[in-house]
């Protein structure tokens, strides 16, 4: 491909990807209610969101779920990545294929399978079920992020530590964790954004008493135009963008 054509094609695709996002962001500051023409710059949709108790409550719930789910997923995922990288054990192939499958399973299938299992185990739908569901779809992302970082390690250092009498847990705390920390942090940030943005799994496993922001947004945009949605959407977009950029910078550092 000729360079001009190549850059032109890439530029075009990237522009098409970012235009809708840009339109949304610009419109969240548009004073005209239906966003048809530019009615001047305003913060009033953000104010409306801020003053809407239902929406703020849902936002707070979302934050809580995301922080808890990302943290638990990061702990379990980091340990699992270390286990998959360091140990040989019975069922290792099964564990890694479960990680693989859970990453590829369409979200809708995961959503109904979780709903069925919550019913079978008698877990009430609400905060707990949401957190469990979010941990489950975040887990493989953390495992893969940490695992691929561990693959780049010099294993001799760990062997030396063991020969000198270090226990497995002190090897983890003193050597593996500090070295893998960027990947662990990036895994947490990615889990947090995945959890904060999830619609499909949440739609199935949430209960009537526990509202979260993406589902609120979903029901609002189905009904019709409400400009606060532009403001909420912009906030969600900016939060994810910032966190993902940070997580990528963490991974890039000292590579």
């Amino acid at each position: 491909m000729a360079p001009i054509f190549r850059w032109g094609f890439m530029g075009l695709v990237l522009t098409l990807i970012y235009i809708p996002i840009l339109v949304l962001v610009v419109n969240s500051f548009n004073a005209s209610k239906y966003g048809i023409k530019w009615g001047g710059f305003t913060f009033k949709w953000y104010e409306k969101f801020w003053n809407n108790e239902g929406l703020m409550g849902a936002a707070l719930n979302s934050l809580t779920v995301s922080i808890v789910a990302a943290s638990v997923a990061t702990v379990i995922g980091t340990l699992a990545a270390v286990a998959l990288h360091r140990y040989h054990f019975k069922g290792k192939a099964l564990l890694s294929s479960m990680v693989f499958v859970s990453m590829l399973t369409p979200e809708i299938v995961m959503a109904i399978s979780l709903l069925i299992v919550f019913m079978a185990l008698g877990i009430k739908l609400g905060f707990i079920s949401l957190v469990i569901g979010h941990i489950t779809f975040c887990l493989p992302f953390v495992i893969v992020a940490v695992y691929s970082r561990l693959k780049g390690f010099d294993m001799k250092m760990l062997e030396a530590a063991r020969d000198l009498g270090a226990s497995e847990s002190s090897i983890f705390w003193k050597i593996i964790l500090p070295l893998a920390l960027p990947a662990v942090a990036s895994g947490w940030l990615l889990s947090f954004t995945l959890s904060l943005d999830d619609v499909i799994v949440s739609a199935f496993v949430t209960g009537p008493g526990y509202e979260i922001l993406p589902l609120k947004v979903y029901s609002m945009v189905r009904v019709g135009v409400s400009p606060e949605v532009n403001a909420i959407s912009t906030i969600l977009l900016v939060v994810s963008l910032v966190l993902v950029v940070i997580s990528q910078l963490l991974l890039r550092e000292d590579k």
Binding site: P20, L24, T193, D197, P214, V217, V221, L236, L241, V245
Partner: peptide, 17 residues
């Protein structure tokens, strides 16, 4: 990058356009 952002919100943006 967009993959990590809210896909519902981006769908809504398409609807808007």
């Amino acid at each position: 990058l967009p993959f990590w952002t809210n896909s519902l919100v981006r769908t809504y943006a398409i609807q808007f356009i």
